[in-house]
Write a protein that binds this DNA or RNA. Structure first.
Lengths: 298, 298
DNA sequence: AATAATTGATGCTAAAAGGGTATCATGAAA
DNA sequence: TTTCATGATACCCTTTTAGCATCAATTATT
């Protein structure tokens, strides 16, 4: 098969017009060139595609078969080109996105939905993982984006803040502080603390512990849970108090009271992070989206 | 889209090797030519298909999409070429075949089956029609082959004998001649005859009437039916006798007796006929089959 | 650190493919 | 018969494509 798409396009024109001169006109070439191209095609195939009497052109059965195939081929080519361009521009693609407990209970769902609305051709694959696991998967190329806690400091990565939440104290209704609207950090220095497992909540602790130390105490953790819901459950049952972020207000559990801190100005940052080297079209689009979207403060 | 199949083949080689020199080797061209061809392709598409660092080549997401598409395209092309060649050689195709009552009750079914076994890719479309209708449809190009009664005499047509049957006389059991094995034509000159409708059985009559006249009588037709089964039914009910061909022995009806003629040597010829101008591959194959196949005498 | 080796890109030239104009041969229509 | 329209052919020019030598950049080796 030494013919090209050109021959196929020429052949289609002749097959549709059944007239070499008109077909040549349509193609914007001279008639002899077309005649030769078709002859060449027939020679290559070893098949007579047309029966030319001097006054008319008829297509053979084999020619008809070839014609049908040619239509599917040019369609196929156009389709492939179109798709390739769309993938290049990111309108089609897959984004594997990691998220933390904190991220998913905040603005992330809304952001993903907003992006999905803008780019319906991009498939978003969310993966629930803690910050460290997400960073590992980004290294391995298993994730395209991470939504993690705290600014990270790695070469070859870029990041962008997506969420900033105040810390709050969560106590059970019967607790002495439950009547208050807001408290100071030092007031809970003596409390029993419920919190996330030290391994998975490492990044959160790296925020929290310095805050406690600044107020002069080390939190005494008496119970650990594996996720936010678990922590809130333990607090509600009177095991102790906990420090979480503002967005626990989105998931109200009866029996709990949420108190602001008067003396804590630092917020928990959730960052979108991604490798700056590999940049698919969809990834570029998502980065643009993250940067254009104004930071929503909770 | 100004690129050709050549670019696609080149691209596939590079995408599979991820190495320009090796890909060029595989294609049997020099490396610079390949580099330029791919660059051209990328420019035409407006898409980077590969990321070339000086030491390695990686395919982009868009490139991967294009690659997948390219595989389907070259497959499609190969498939279309293959099919076209097969149609050209007649291994694939449609043959519209007309047949008469007489033909279908004789050797035709066996012949069609034999051809079908040789050429399983050819679709045979049988159409039941009397001789005249078949000839009309052949003129219109609606049929490719006719299996008709008697040699025909038309310019632009070819024909080939496929069946030759002796005439027989069919009488009911109670008939005086029923005890005989064979008779002479003149013995039934006074009988009542049952036969096919004069319009549709015209060709048969053109055989039969001269035979009767040669024996000195004109058959007195008292009842007409539209097909062989109808005729036999009327004979069995004692309406009269009829003259048919030998192959009525294939469809035995109780109450009937079949008698050979002692003095009739002429046979009823069934001919395959076709237009000699339009010759598709399948048609050529079928003609070859008809000519090679020895004439089966019943 | 210096050198060798390998990779894809570039510049130049030759060959091949493709196209245009004029013209021919043929069969249908007038 | 003449005229007309059609596809094929001949000849020449343009564009495309390939090959060769070489470059620039990076990696591997010493």
């Amino acid at each position: 098969m030494k013919f090209g798409l050109r021959h196929i396009r020429y052949f289609i024109a002749v097959a549709e017009e059944l007239h070499f001169r008109r077909a040549a006109e349509r193609l914007g070439i001279a008639q002899p060139a077309l005649s030769r191209a078709i002859r060449y095609l027939e020679k290559e195939l070893g098949v007579d595609l047309f029966v030319r009497s001097n006054r008319s052109v008829a297509i053979t059965a084999a020619g008809q078969t070839f014609f049908d195939g040619c239509l599917t081929i040019v369609n196929s080519v156009a389709h492939v080109v179109e798709n390739t361009r769309r993938v290049n521009q990111g309108q089609i693609g897959v984004l594997r996105i990691g998220y933390t407990d904190t991220a998913i209970s905040g603005v992330l769902p809304g952001q993903l939905k907003a992006f999905q609305d803008q780019q319906p051709g991009v498939v978003l694959q969310p993966h629930h993982d803690v910050t460290n696991t997400q960073l590992q998967k980004l290294d391995q190329g298993v994730l395209d984006f991470g939504f993690v806690t705290g600014p990270i400091n790695r070469s070859g990565y870029e990041q962008c803040p997506v969420q900033s939440e105040r810390f709050v104290c969560v106590v059970y209704e019967a607790h002495p502080l439950a009547a208050r609207k807001s408290i100071r950090m030092e007031e809970i220095s003596g409390e029993d603390f419920v919190h996330g497992s030290s391994k998975d909540w490492q990044q959160f602790y790296s925020y929290l512990f310095p805050l406690c130390r600044r107020s002069g105490f080390e939190p005494r953790i008496v119970q650990e849970a594996y996720n936010t819901a678990g922590i809130l459950g333990l607090v509600a049952s009177g095991m102790g108090v906990t420090i979480l972020t503002d967005n626990v207000r989105n998931s109200i559990v009866p029996g709990l009271v949420i108190l602001d801190f008067e003396d804590v100005d630092e917020n928990l940052q959730t960052m979108a992070v991604w490798r700056s080297d590999v940049m698919s079209g969809s990834k570029k689009l998502f980065v643009g989206f993250l940067r254009d979207d104004p930071l929503e403060l909770s």
